[in-house]
C-alpha cells in the first residue's frame, strides 16, 4: 500500500511539474527569443509578462472546438492526444532525484525510445486526417524525418548502455559518479542532441511545420485546445529531451552542494535554453538535405561510435 501511494504521489508530482514547466516554457522561449532578437517579448500580463501563459491558456481553452467538415473526425481528434500521451508517459521513467520518479523500470531507456516513436503517429495522423494538402506534405515530411532520426537516436544511446551496462536510467545516473558520460560518449551526445531536436521537430529541424513553406504543416487545420495540445506537447517534448540529455550524459541529479532535484532542474533548463538558442540562430535545412544528412552522416557516425565503444568495453573488461 505504501509503495503504491508513493507511486501515485510521485506520478502526480511529476505530472504537476511537467504541466507547470511546459507552459512556462512558452513564456521563457518568447522572452529569451526577444532578448536575442533585440525586442521586448510579452511583458504586459503580470510581472515580466509571466502571466501571459495564463492568458494564452484561457484563450486556448475558451476557443471554439472546431473540426473542419472535410476532416476525418475521429483520427483528427485522436492525433493531438497521442503526442501528449507519449511524451507524458516517457516522463514516468525519468529519474528526477535519487528517490523521486514515477517508476524504476529496468528497461527505462527502451521505454523512452518506444514512446518517442509513438510521437511520429501523432504527426502522420494529424497530417492525414486534416485532409489538407499542406498538412499532408507536413505529415509526410514528419514521418520520414522522425523515422530516420529515430534509427540513430537509438544507436547513439547504445554506447551509454554498453558503458554503464544497464537500460535502467537510475543505474545509468549512478554509474556516472566518477565521470559524466558526455566525456567518453561525446559523439553519442552530439548525435542524440541532433536526433532529439529532430524528434521534437523544432527549428532548425522543423520541416514538418515549416511556416514559410507549408504554413503550419501537419497542424495547419488545428485550433483551440487541439492545437494547444500540439503546442504544449512540443514543449513537453523539449523538456523530455533535455531531461534525457541531462540524465544520460550529464550525470542526472548528481552534483555537489544543492539537493539532487535542483541539479536535475538546472541541467534540464540549461539544455532547454540551448534548444531555444538554436532556434534563434539557425536557418532550416531542406527536407531532403535533412534526410540525407541523417542517413549518410549521422547513422554511420552512430554506428562507428557504437563499435568503438564496444571494442573498448570488451578490451577493458575482457
Amino acid at each position: 500500500m505504501i509503495t503504491s501511494a508513493h507511486t501515485v504521489l510521485a506520478a502526480l508530482g511529476v505530472l504537476l511539474g511537467v504541466f507547470t514547466i511546459a507552459p512556462g516554457l512558452i513564456w521563457l522561449e518568447r522572452r529569451l527569443l526577444a532578448v536575442w532578437q533585440d525586442r521586448y517579448g510579452p511583458n504586459r500580463v503580470g510581472p515580466f509578462g509571466i502571466l501571459q501563459v495564463v492568458a494564452d491558456m484561457i484563450k486556448i481553452f475558451t476557443k471554439e472546438d472546431w473540426v473542419p467538415p472535410f476532416a476525418d473526425k475521429p483520427v483528427f481528434i485522436i492525433a493531438p492526444t497521442i503526442i501528449m500521451l507519449s511524451t507524458l508517459m516517457s516522463f514516468a521513467v525519468v529519474p528526477v532525484g535519487p528517490n523521486i520518479g514515477v517508476i524504476d523500470m529496468n528497461i527505462g531507456l527502451l521505454f523512452f525510445l518506444a514512446m518517442s516513436s509513438m510521437g511520429a503517429y501523432s504527426v502522420v495522423l494529424a497530417g492525414w486526417a486534416s485532409n489538407n494538402k499542406y498538412s499532408l506534405l507536413g505529415g509526410m515530411r514528419g514521418a520520414s524525418q522522425m523515422i530516420s532520426y529515430e534509427v540513430f537516436m537509438g544507436l547513439s544511446l547504445l554506447g551509454v548502455v554498453l558503458m554503464n551496462g544497464s537500460f535502467n536510467l537510475r543505474e545509468i545516473v549512478l554509474a556516472q559518479e566518477g565521470m559524466w558520460n558526455v566525456i567518453p560518449q561525446f559523439f553519442g551526445f552530439l548525435i542524440f542532441l541532433l536526433a532529439g531536436l529532430a524528434e521534437s521537430h523544432r527549428l532548425p529541424l522543423d520541416v514538418p511545420e515549416a511556416e514559410s513553406e507549408i504554413i503550419a504543416g501537419f497542424h495547419s487545420e488545428y485550433s483551440g485546445m487541439k492545437f494547444g495540445m500540439f503546442f504544449v506537447g512540443e514543449y513537453i517534448g523539449v523538456t523530455l529531451v533535455s531531461a534525457m540529455i541531462a540524465t544520460l550524459f550529464f550525470g542526472g541529479w548528481l552534483g555537489p552542494w544543492f539537493p539532487p532535484i535542483v541539479w536535475m532542474l538546472i541541467k534540464t533548463f540549461a539544455f532547454i535554453c540551448l534548444f531555444i538558442l538554436l532556434r534563434a540562430s539557425l536557418p532550416r535545412p531542406r527536407y531532403d538535405q535533412l534526410l540525407s544528412y541523417g542517413w549518410k552522416v549521422m547513422l554511420p557516425l552512430a554506428i562507428l561510435n557504437l563499435m568503438v565503444t564496444g571494442a573498448i568495453v570488451v578490451a577493458t573488461t575482457g
Binding site: 527569443l33 540562430s281 536557418p283
Partner: peptide, 16 residues
Amino acid sequence: FAQDVGALSPVFYMFN
C-alpha cells in the same frame, strides 16, 4: 529572405 529559409532572428535585426 533569411526568414524564408527558416532563420528566425535576422529579420528583427534588419528591421531594426
